[in-house]
Design a protein around this nucleic acid. Structure first.
Lengths: 346, 346
DNA sequence: TTGAAAGCGCTACCAA
DNA sequence: TTGGTAGCGCTTTCAA
């Protein structure tokens, strides 16, 4: 306590937090004394407690935090969040979620933040429950049909986006097709899995993308049961390679692979390139259009990653008064590159 | 207050924080009541104030926060920090630093953290001053010769690393050489700058790298004044392109460009490739060995980015008892690829 | 323009 | 095993 300067604690407080409440001469005197006494200014925690807000927002990943920095889409998303927080003078807290449900809940309960951007790649309901219980605002990065009026989100039309790329592939004549998606089923190993319908996938994003893929092939007479569904345990090139292992040695291998992300698609291209005897003529598509996709010539669907992050943070930091403005749908765009081509074999 | 359950506040507190201090039956009863009453568990801020620690560490970038996610080296560094915090059950707070010194100080003063990883690309002394005044521990990512015994850091031998790549280029016969470095002088524009000696560069890292470059060429009889020094205002491909604009139209253009980072080097390669009439035979080297460098065939010096981040965080979270163990020097390695070759023109 | 006092929500000590 | 109490460091009324 620097009231050793001869003033009261409130005056010191004012010197830091409300410079207009005291003479600048006195303020300067207090600041000088603080410097000399080594007082580093108000304790942030105590200040937060009293004021009722912290000055930072949390970003939640339901996958590993270290993974977030490995995934190019997530990195772009974070960059967007960064620009918004920067502009707003707010910090961003990256909260790692432990494997165990109980511990993960605890982590969300204990985060000292004023709100959350929920960037989830798996089930997220439990996290939203905790956040709501804490009475904190949040913005989710998926379109929620059942969203309450005060619930904010920024997302894309997953189904329509997936349809656009699948229709492109179907239009090229492909009929034997594999769909490669991250975590179709919670603990399934890499490789083919069976789902009685796309609507059985637990994660909403996955469900939307599978639905779009299925729509496009239904339109050309290929039913859900005729599509090969491949599970990738994790969104990584490695997981993708594992998922397609042996796939092209089958008697009637797929002539196209539609992946649920660019990272998976790049893994497939990599696996194909490594095949002894050269790469078979398989069309491959991704999702997101991360920077690496262009270099690899990957056909994909672009969604604006950085914008998504920026808007998510802005929605959190400057809530629109109009509830409808809190539901943002971002545009997507089919990007055709060299990784897709006409079906060659009969 | 959930002592509407019939117990005291301390018992409720114990139910959350010290489960061994009460019967599991009572604990369960309290937790159930909390769930019903919608009590979300202890308020993190109040808990932090009382306990005296927060459970999160700050990561400081002296450049824009959004930049941190654009720079592949920084992203790998953050990934490393992420793995360590994850393992430790700690969150990481990314603190954006405003342009204005005063505001930036305030940002560091106000960050609710238990310590800092200081990843700086420019002058950092003021930040360290604030952190020390707050009495918080920190780990810096540059070797500090004048480091106090309790000061921790993880870095590389910048001078030796830079020497290794410059000696490689000198060994190939190059004598007319340009050195391209980010922010040689605070507000200099892109392009050639003059410095009476490498030791006049304000930022220590820059100084170290320039020193290593200069050493290698001094060994083959090329003095500092014969080297062309180029300033890039910012670590980006764009800044690099701007810095080398017109350089190769000179009467006696450099036959090699040594860049202070891969990002800059890739910008130079890009600028060369775009030249009308084709790319002149210029050798280019980078620094860091980011993932993109391999694809571009860039000769560079590898430093372990993710390890640097991980070790920085670990040094902060689990301080070694032995002071010497707090000073970590990471190995570097010259990686020769296609972007360097023998000097062809006389 | 300044000072006194209350209390943000919690935990840790100590006594029962 | 449980409850009472002090106080973490600050901001913010309100009164002087």
């Amino acid at each position: 306590m620097a009231d050793a300067v001869g003033v009261s604690r409130s005056t010191v407080s004012n010197a830091y937090s409300r410079p207009d409440q005291l003479s600048s001469a006195l303020r300067e005197r207090i600041l000088a004394a603080a410097r000399q006494l080594g007082y580093p200014g108000p304790n942030p925690t105590a200040r937060s407690l009293r004021r009722g807000f912290v000055g930072s927002i949390g970003v939640l990943f339901t996958s590993q935090l270290s993974y977030a920095f490995t995934d190019p889409f997530a990195v772009r998303f974070l960059a967007g969040v960064g620009t918004a927080t920067e502009r707003h003078g707010t910090s961003m807290l990256l909260v790692p979620l432990p494997k165990e449900q109980v511990d993960a809940r605890r982590a969300v309960e204990n985060a000292a933040v004023d709100g959350f951007c929920v960037y989830c790649v798996a089930d997220e309901e439990w996290a939203l429950d905790v956040i709501r219980a804490r009475g904190l605002p949040y913005v989710s990065t998926a379109v929620r049909d059942d969203a309450a009026a005060d619930e904010r989100f920024v997302g894309i039309d997953e189904r329509a986006a997936a349809h656009s790329v699948a229709a492109h592939v179907a239009g090229l004549g492909h009929r034997r097709v594999a769909l490669l998606v991250d975590s179709v089923l919670p603990d399934a190993p890499a490789g083919p899995v069976t789902l009685s319908g796309f609507d059985r996938a637990p994660h909403p994003t996955t469900r939307g993308r599978l639905a779009g893929f299925a729509d496009a092939f239904a339109e050309v007479g290929v039913g859900w049961s005729e599509l090969t569904l491949l599970n990738a345990p994790g969104n990584s090139g490695h997981a993708a390679s594992a998922a397609v292992a042996g796939l092209f040695d089958r008697p009637e291998p797929p002539t196209a692979v539609l992946a649920g992300s660019d990272v998976l698609a790049l893994g497939v291209l990599d696996a194909l390139a490594r095949r002894p005897g050269g790469s078979p003529p398989v069309s491959v598509t991704g999702f997101d259009d991360v920077p690496e996709a262009a270099a690899a010539g990957l056909t994909t669907v672009r969604q604006p990653a950085q914008e998504k992050g920026r808007i998510a943070a802005e929605l959190l930091l400057d809530p629109p008064t109009d509830a409808a403005a809190g539901h943002v749908l971002l545009p997507t765009e089919l990007v055709v590159r060299a990784s897709t081509g006409p079906h060659l074999r009969s």
